[in-house]
């Protein structure tokens, strides 16, 4: 049997979460004695198979078809289910990205198997897989088991380490009937700029009500650019209309786990902490010395962010 990673590509390039999933798949395959396979779906993407080989895959199955150019949940799920029917894997891994969040449950329903979403750890012990998935936005962690034969899981981005390794790396074509998609993608608007995407950023700079207004985010953006970071926001700042909801970090926004999370002017409500509490290092900048953010920050700076952030940007520039 095998462990299958459903590779995620957009516009012909693989996303980082795919390498995280492959590295995890490799680790689990070694523990369980399964083979590691990758399934690559799209149009004109066969060339990406080589990149997947770096992470120890035994086989890459490619479904390269003009009808799969634009991702649609129903068509991709049909391809995936057909592959699962042939392969009968013990475990199928996806990223918990917008792609995996939609595709994995649709495929799981087609296959009729159990799926654990948004895993922060998966291990193989005593002949079974154990999945860790935060619930209540991280206020608790559930340990799950899934009745087989097929199990599926989506992995939280930025949590699983990327490890390169050797594998047989065979590339095969997988042929299947592709149903007509039920939806048509008529437009795509990607955020402009060079800043990384929030859920896969290594560093995130977030601002909250303490910024005093929408113009306060200029300061956060400047800091983010100095650090190569993404920009996030507290709910208060989103509710005040200073930032779009896509930037909201927290229980009713995005859950992130960067290496470094810089919270400026954010008091640290429990709902916000739920969204960023798994960050490796947290810096809190707040003028209120009693702010809750200081109870979780590794480094707390009490003071006026309008003075601290410009000084911090200067200091970071000196280093470059």
């Amino acid at each position: 049997m095998s462990i299958v990673v459903c590779a995620e590509q957009r516009d012909g390039s693989l996303r980082k979460i795919t390498f995280e999933a492959l590295s995890t798949g490799k680790r689990l395959a070694e523990a369980s004695g399964e083979t590691l396979k990758a399934l690559l779906i799209g149009n004109g993407i066969a060339g990406l198979a080589d990149e997947l080989k770096k992470y120890g895959v035994d086989e890459v199955a490619v479904v390269d078809n003009a009808a799969l150019g634009a991702y649609t949940a129903d068509a991709y799920a049909a391809v995936l289910a057909a592959y699962v029917a042939q392969e009968n894997p013990a475990l199928v891994l996806f990223g918990h990205s917008s792609f995996g969040k939609e595709l994995a449950p649709r495929a799981a329903a087609k296959v009729d198997c159990g799926l654990v979403s948004d895993c922060i750890d998966i291990n193989f012990a005593d002949g079974d897989y154990l999945f860790k998935h935060p619930v209540y936005a991280g206020k608790a962690i559930g340990n799950y088991k899934v009745a087989g034969p097929v199990r599926m899981a989506t992995l939280r981005p930025n949590v699983f380490p990327i490890v390169e390794s050797a594998g047989a790396g065979a590339v095969v074509n997988f042929a299947t009937d592709i149903p007509a998609a039920k939806v048509t993608v008529t437009g795509t608007m990607m955020a402009s700029g060079d800043r990384p995407e929030l859920t896969e950023a290594d560093i995130i700079c977030s601002g909250g009500r303490g910024l005093g207004g929408p113009e306060g985010f200029k300061l956060i953006e400047a800091l983010a650019d100095a650090l190569g970071a993404a920009v996030g926001s507290s709910r208060a700042a989103v509710d005040a209309g200073w930032r779009e909801h896509a930037a909201q970090v927290g229980q009713t926004g995005k859950v992130v786990s960067p290496n470094l999370y810089v919270a400026s002017g954010i008091s640290g409500a429990i709902q916000h902490l739920a969204g960023m509490g798994s960050s490796k290092v947290i810096v809190g900048i707040n003028k209120d010395g009693e702010a809750n953010i200081f109870n979780v920050a590794d480094y707390g700076v009490e003071g006026d962010l309008n003075k601290i952030i410009p000084a911090l940007i200067e200091k970071l520039k000196e280093l470059q």
Binding site: C113, G114, L115, V116, L130, P134, V135, G138, K139, A140, I141, G142, N143, Y144, K145, V146, A147, G277, S278, I282, F294, N295, V296, A297, D298, Y299, G300, V301, E302, G303, K307, I308, A311, L312, E314, K315
Partner: peptide, 29 residues
């Protein structure tokens, strides 16, 4: 159910870290 919750646990609590104090330039450095 195919997915069974074996047990839930509370996440390890984050501890407050260091508080940096002093003049702005000093703190930032």
């Amino acid at each position: 159910s195919k997915v069974v919750l074996a047990a839930a646990e509370l996440p390890p609590a984050r501890k407050a870290g260091q508080r940096l104090t002093g003049e702005v330039d000093e703190v930032v450095a």
